[in-house]
Design a protein around this nucleic acid. Sequence first.
DNA 1: CCTAATGTCTCTAGCAGCTATAGCTTCAAG
DNA 2: CTTGAAGCTATAGCTGCTAGAGACATTAGG
Lengths: 147, 147
Amino acid sequence: MLTIGKLGEAAGVKVPTIRYYEQIGLLPEPERSAGNQRLYDAKAHDRLAFIRHARDLGFPLEAIRDLLSLSDKPDQSCAAADIIATEQLAAVEARIARLTALKAELERMITQCAQGTIADCRVIEVLSDHALCAEDHRAKTGSGGAV
Amino acid sequence: MLTIGKLGEAAGVKVPTIRYYEQIGLLPEPERSAGNQRLYDAKAHDRLAFIRHARDLGFPLEAIRDLLSLSDKPDQSCAAADIIATEQLAAVEARIARLTALKAELERMITQCAQGTIADCRVIEVLSDHALCAEDHRAKTGSGGAV
DNA sequence: CCTAATGTCTCTAGCAGCTATAGCTTCAAG
DNA sequence: CTTGAAGCTATAGCTGCTAGAGACATTAGG
């Protein structure tokens, strides 16, 4: 049986985060010691590792909740899990595309900012003027996704 | 003179977001009409476009605040702006690297999830087991950065 | 000129996904 | 047996918005 601190260490998750996951129902309420401290078993560790890992991969907590509920009924088709992963893949590809354009833009800005004063510095100009953009940022108006 | 709605439309920023930027001091308080409605000029539009564009490029509001303060005193060296852009470039490159690894992982998961039941489904298995990882997610423990 | 439909106003609360603080209790080592 | 770390609950804060309530302003049509 692990205390919350040991569990956090083992799974690479901070202690308050574990309590937070319990609070929002991602982790079940664990046993308590005589002194009211949480005690976790190996199953809890696995579940937490699953969550941690999925978070690392960029899954939002809601998707993780879905995946966990799927894994609780292992006789069903995994199509649903596949859909969740596929959606994540699309989101990730979109982010990569955007970041790559962004990288080019920043490199261009930095190259052009060659020891002048801000008056000549295109960093600000590039950011002010849509027409100077290599990429069309306007396309994503309203999507508001994380970059 | 533009009303807040027209300005938002022109700059691709939602109305409450404009008011939010004003509230946190990124935009100056504009003139008001006789009926107390905000009225913006072309300068305000440029500044908002600057902010919008920088947000699109992934700059946090604090960096934007710095850039704006630089642009307010254009006689200084652009070295500071360059530093900000360079920092952002590094962050962007790190994000791209992480997302690319993540993409490979998701593709692997999806390929392995071949219409079976969840019991055989590797999506969940892959997420449960660190040892199956192509990439070392453990390295970034504690950084907690956006993906 | 009047009315109805927008648009705008302020204020407050909420979202994700944690993180930090305060003030207490419990546990393990020396 | 004491002390210091680790645990407990509860609450508030963070970023960058977004949504709602309820009241006033503006504009287009009849």
